[in-house]
Design a protein around this nucleic acid. Structure first.
Lengths: 127, 127
DNA sequence: TCCTATGTACGAGTGCAATCGTACTACCTG
DNA sequence: CAGGTAGTACGATTGCACTCGTACATAGGA
């Protein structure tokens, strides 16, 4: 019997505002697969995206321009799509913008603790 | 503030027996990288290996033949090496055999909760 | 000493993912 | 309606990971 000491953040779940646009296609909670989610999170850029959403969100969801990522737009599209299709994030279309947020409640329900691991992650030192 | 309900297994840490052979090359605890570990665990076969080690170990570590995996030997070598190099497992040479066990304590120290997620994982239904 | 069992090393084939440039679409603003 | 803005679609390239066959190495037993 080992007592797991929980370190810090324990990300809080934001309630969904009313009257949002429909989410883009995504897997349902029951369909989430650990191997797929882990695959989506095994990329440093995507970890950066998810962590920033978890720790620095100023609103419910954020457009891809909010992140300040130094990559071509088409690369960002690729990664945001990968996160959504794995079930890590939910994306909605607001006119021109496509905004993302992390499916914290769904991930906690299926994979408790995983979101917290991403929240405390730090990128590798670039030597 | 959300209280995370911890479901079940909470894998116990086996103490290392004395006088074991030296482990094969592996990353130190401080060197473990979340993205690398998640990448290693994003493969169903490797999840199967780790889960079996966690739940069905009869001894401290197990040779690759103990798992009953229907793959060529060279494929298995590949996956066991991937797990070791990511820091998920530790491998030791016992004469002919190379036995593996999961670095539960190290993983719990760096990524609390992750091992438990693997323990409750179940493979996808094969339709 | 030869045979078998366990597993590695190496190389080839395959496919997918990451990356990015370019062209395009859609919406908002004047 | 013209321009700017946010982002997608598509295609090409590249590299890596998974898969596996074959050859090789080594330990232990008959």
């Amino acid at each position: 019997m080992s007592a797991t000491v929980r370190k810090a953040p324990v990300i809080t779940v934001r309630p969904e505002p009313e009257n949002l646009p429909e989410p883009l296609p995504e897997p349902a909670v029951e369909e989430l697969r650990l191997e797929t989610v882990l695959g989506a999170l095994s990329d440093p850029l995507r970890l950066t995206i998810v962590r920033k959403l978890l720790l620095e969100s100023e609103a419910f969801d954020h457009s891809c321009g909010w992140f300040d990522l130094d990559r071509p737009k088409s690369s960002l599209t690729h990664h945001f799509k990968a996160l959504r299709e794995a079930g890590v994030t939910r994306q909605r279309q607001y006119g021109l913008e496509r905004r993302s947020h992390v499916r914290v409640a769904d991930l906690n329900a299926r994979f408790p603790g995983l979101v917290d691991l991403v929240a405390v992650w730090t990128p590798r030192d670039t030597p």
